[in-house]
Design a protein around this nucleic acid. Structure first.
Length: 113
DNA sequence: CACATGACTGACT
DNA sequence: AAGTCAGCCATGT
């Protein structure tokens, strides 16, 4: 298990491009990769994020509802929310406040980059 | 090679 | 409005 991380690597790189204090969704990343339907692969890639290095800021990646779906996969279920709050992002009921305002579209932002 | 799983999303009931 | 089903594609067994 070393190569074959092509898809994972794509997701990891995109996530690492997320500006601090911003968030994005799995669907956005999937779309950026060219497969808006492969949102599952994005989540799957995040599952492997703990094996990637440097560590991927998965706490910025949420589902389309802005919910901290993957918080349970962190070191601690509350770590994700805590990190977001430290970034100045308000989190209530496992959901990011002003999600659409903090939303960072990789396809759009990276395209303009 | 075939089946089962997964941090999602959209549509249907 | 809330719950259920299917589609999507890569990884692991």
């Amino acid at each position: 298990m070393k190569k074959t991380e092509s898809f994972f690597d794509l997701v990891f790189q995109v996530v690492r491009q997320i500006p601090e204090g911003r968030v994005t969704s799995y669907g956005a990343i999937a779309s950026c990769l060219g497969s808006p339907q492969s949102s599952r692969m994005v989540g799957w890639a995040m599952n492997a994020s703990h094996t990637a290095f440097p560590p991927v800021p998965a706490h910025w990646v949420l589902n389309r509802n802005g919910l901290l779906t993957g918080k349970m996969h962190f070191s601690s279920p509350d770590a994700m929310q805590d990190l977001l709050e430290k970034e100045g992002i308000e989190v209530k009921n496992d959901a990011v406040i002003r999600f659409k305002e903090l939303f960072w579209d990789p396809q759009k932002e990276l395209s303009l980059e």
